[in-house]
């Protein structure tokens, strides 16, 4: 389970309307957030990549399990390291590929929980 249901329930006091609203807001913003990450990667702009990953990480902080959130912290660190040390983004891309698959899983879990 990538989604932290208890966190979402706690945050919304298990208010179903609020769960639906906040989930929908996340789902609406998600394509843009992913596009920003992939654009920055394709342009090899490590600083923009770190910012874009950070933005998605912040949003995930409201829904995701701690271990999945930590994966995004790691993605952000890899992008920042590449930015400051000029290292390759190969390791970052491998980690992103895994994280993105889990993101799809979390989206499905969220849709199911929110009934949308």
């Amino acid at each position: 389970m990538i989604l932290d249901e208890a966190r979402v329930q706690d945050m919304t006091r298990n208010n179903t309307k609020l769960i639906a609203s906040i989930s929908q807001l996340f789902l609406n913003e998600l394509p843009d957030m992913i596009a920003n990450i992939e654009r920055a990667y394709n342009q090899n702009d490590c600083s923009a990549l770190a910012n874009a990953v950070h933005r998605l990480k912040s949003a995930l902080g409201n829904f995701a399990s701690k271990s999945y959130y930590d994966e995004f912290s790691q993605l952000e660190s890899l992008a920042l390291n590449a930015s400051t040390e000029g290292s390759s983004l190969a390791e970052w891309f491998a980690a992103w590929t895994v994280a993105k698959l889990k993101l799809e899983q979390m989206v499905n879990e969220l849709k199911s929980m929110a009934g949308i």
Binding site: M11, T12, S21, I22, L25, F26, E29, R55, S58, A59, G61, N62
Partner: peptide, 8 residues
């Protein structure tokens, strides 16, 4: 800056 966090 994150709309979802602001909302939550």
């Amino acid at each position: 800056d994150d709309a979802i966090t602001r909302f939550a």
